[in-house]
Design a protein around this nucleic acid. Sequence first.
DNA 1: TCCTACATTGGACTAAGTCCAAGTCAAGCA
DNA 2: TGCTTGACTTGGACTTAGTCCAATGTAGGA
Lengths: 139, 139
Amino acid sequence: MSDLLERLRGRGWRMTAQRRVVAEVLDGDHVHLTADEVHARAVTRLPEISRATVYNTLGEMVTLGEVIEVATDGRAKRYDPNAHRPHQHLVCGRCGAIRDVQPGGDPLADLPDSERFGFTISEVEVTYRGICPSCATTA
Amino acid sequence: MSDLLERLRGRGWRMTAQRRVVAEVLDGDHVHLTADEVHARAVTRLPEISRATVYNTLGEMVTLGEVIEVATDGRAKRYDPNAHRPHQHLVCGRCGAIRDVQPGGDPLADLPDSERFGFTISEVEVTYRGICPSCATTA
DNA sequence: TCCTACATTGGACTAAGTCCAAGTCAAGCA
DNA sequence: TGCTTGACTTGGACTTAGTCCAATGTAGGA
């Protein structure tokens, strides 16, 4: 059973077959699906689910802070259910594979006041880019 | 005169009125325009320039490493001519303002081997998010 | 000046996402 | 259990960002 689903239920979310399916599709580690991918997988379990509902549901999950939106490539946004453990992303520039990673240190501490331009900073996002092992071997 | 334009000329780029205008529009610090914004500004100087040319030209500048593509918001990509000084971005979540910033420290060093999953990492991108001073006062 | 390879154009096309009016249904209440 | 109702879902039209291509134009070398 999905942790994500449990948490959503606990927030008084009205439970529908559509939302359940979206939550189930998004369960797991290193999951970074686009909205269309979520829809494609949801359709296999609930053929009549619409794209609009998938977008609505993903948007609500993001608003509730249960899912994170990731824009690693300037194409479609990806949805990451690993919202309760702070982490960053490691992206393969060739195949697009994405891994969640946890760097040590506090990147925010590296930004001196003189470089903050008076902003109140609330969040730091780090994307490591490179080549994954399987792309490296099939050069 | 634009530094960017000088560098492009030095690479044997065939110089056309369109390319000159795009390069001029992209000159300066803290410049992060979308392709459409570049086009809108280019049109005021060269009314017949087409969107396709703006996209082509921006794409070439990125390939040549003279301009950086920035995807801070999952909407339109932005183009940053500050390609020769390594820097990161500070983004206002309310008005979308973007500043170039130079953090101290090496974020790559913060990622232990055990968190690299065998990737060869070539690049690290950091986005600081918060509220800019003028949005903070007009709460 | 002429040639030609490279650049530009505009319009059609695709991908990603939003919006909306009409229909459906979960869940609390009697 | 059966209503009722407000929240949810639907599909299709629409918007935005970007790509593609065949026809046309032109920078720069000979």
